[in-house]
Simulated scan of single mutants.
Amino acid sequence: MKILLSAGLRLFVMCLALYALLVAITLVLFPLPGRSAPFDTASAGATVFQTEAKYFVMNRAAIGTPGKHVVFLGASNTVGGFPVALTQAQLPDAVVSNAALSGSNLTQIHEAFQLTRRAIKPADRAHTVYVIGLWYGLFVNDRLHWPHVQGQPQQTAIDTELYRYDFYRRAAGGPVAVLPEKLIPFATIAIYPVIALEKIVRVVTGPVREAWLGAQPGRTDQQRDEYVASAQDMHDETAYWHTFFPSGAVDAQQFAVLDALVTQARADGSAVVLVNLPIPAWHSAAVSYDGDYQTRLHALIARHAGDPLVSTVSMRDMNTDSWFCDEVHPKPHIIPLWVSRIAAPVNAVVARVDERASAPAAQTHQAAAGAARRLGTHTDVAIVDVAGAKP
């Protein structure tokens, strides 16, 4: 019996050593993004994580470096419209992170916000500015945006990655953490060979999947800059969005989610900048729900008008048709104009945060606690604790 136990122990130690060697080799071949590297979902394809959602979920601890933060939230036009390197150069007084995720509605943006704030130490949340890129396409009803089998809970792209390695479990209210937040980076390293294998498979099978799905090859920056929308393009792009807004109006519940996000951020002591992003004039004129979005957004802004740390930037006048490479995304040579447009207002908010930080700590804590009571939730809630985050 002792011989069997001894042999089993030696085999276990040997297997453990071999797996540790495999982890080490994988880390050499596919280095983790450095903690000093900017957090940028646009860079996901160049990392072992490959997709934006996986990069966000598995690497979000990188946002939690001490100090002042400017965190961008939104969808693909925020991912591409505010490149971290270019934006950081114009926002020198804080660390810029882009945590936007392509294909999001407000439900997923709220979820990204909750995971982001949990990665940032409570003491640093009062030194954090959230910049939220908005347009009507974010206000799609969950039922249409995240279709799922009746009777089953909906699942966002973030949810898929949370569940993938059993770091979170499914519950009626949404994902529930199995591991403490601080252990996620260590768990990520423990399964690193699996993540690397998934990247290899995804890269190797990419051309086959694209051919099967009939996906168009990605355009170069030159092709995007040279793009001119044809009548057929306008028709197809407008028809696509009509499928998400059959009533001709945006989803009111998604505005409730945005309002909950702003309220929770302020309860944390964080500042918020709402950026009303432009779309080409031809597209705005073609869809009724863009007007409905504008009306509802102005009403939400009015509700927070008395808060000096909730600011707005309207870029809607930057709607020249020739500045866009489709119905929503700016051409590459226009992106620096987007960054320049928001730089001064965001820098002003960062300065206001600095001024507020010099106020007595007890006063700041009391204000945050009062906001939390009005919201009806604790200031360190889990992902789905804020009303409106899930249907």
Rank of each mutant, 00 (worst) to 15 (best):
Arg316Gln: 13
Ala302Asn: 06
Pro308Arg: 09
Gly269Pro: 04
Asp326Glu: 08
Asp317Gly: 04
Phe244Val: 06
Leu258Thr: 08
Lys331Cys: 07
Pro308Ser: 13
Met315Asp: 02
Ala286His: 06
Gln232Cys: 02
Ala239Cys: 06
Pro280Val: 01
Glu327Gln: 11
Tyr293Ser: 07
His283Lys: 14
Trp338Thr: 07
Asn276Ser: 13
Asp317His: 11
Ser314Leu: 12
His298Ile: 13
Leu274Gly: 06
Ala302Gly: 09
Asp268Thr: 02
Cys325Ile: 02
Met315Ile: 02
Pro308Trp: 13
Pro246His: 11
Val328Gln: 08
Tyr293Cys: 13
Met318Lys: 08
Phe324Trp: 03
Val313Lys: 05
Met315Ala: 05
Ser247Val: 10
Ser247Cys: 10
Thr263Gln: 14
Met318Tyr: 02
Arg341Asp: 00
Tyr289Ala: 07
Tyr240Gln: 14
Ile301Cys: 00
His304Pro: 05
Leu337Asn: 04
Arg303Met: 12
Asp326Leu: 02
His329Trp: 02
Val273Met: 14
Ala343Tyr: 14
Gly306Arg: 00
Tyr240Val: 02
Ile279Gln: 11
Phe324Thr: 04
Trp282Lys: 05
Phe244Met: 14
Asp251Lys: 03
Ala285Arg: 10
Thr238Glu: 14
Ala281Val: 00
Lys331Arg: 04
Pro330Val: 10
Gly269Asn: 07
Leu309Trp: 07
His333Val: 00
Tyr293Thr: 05
Met315Thr: 01
Trp282Gln: 14
Ala344Phe: 11
Glu327Val: 02
Tyr240Arg: 15
Pro336Ser: 15
Lys331Leu: 02
Val313Gln: 03
Arg296Tyr: 01
Ala271Pro: 01
Ala229Lys: 05
Asp233Asn: 09
Gln264Leu: 12
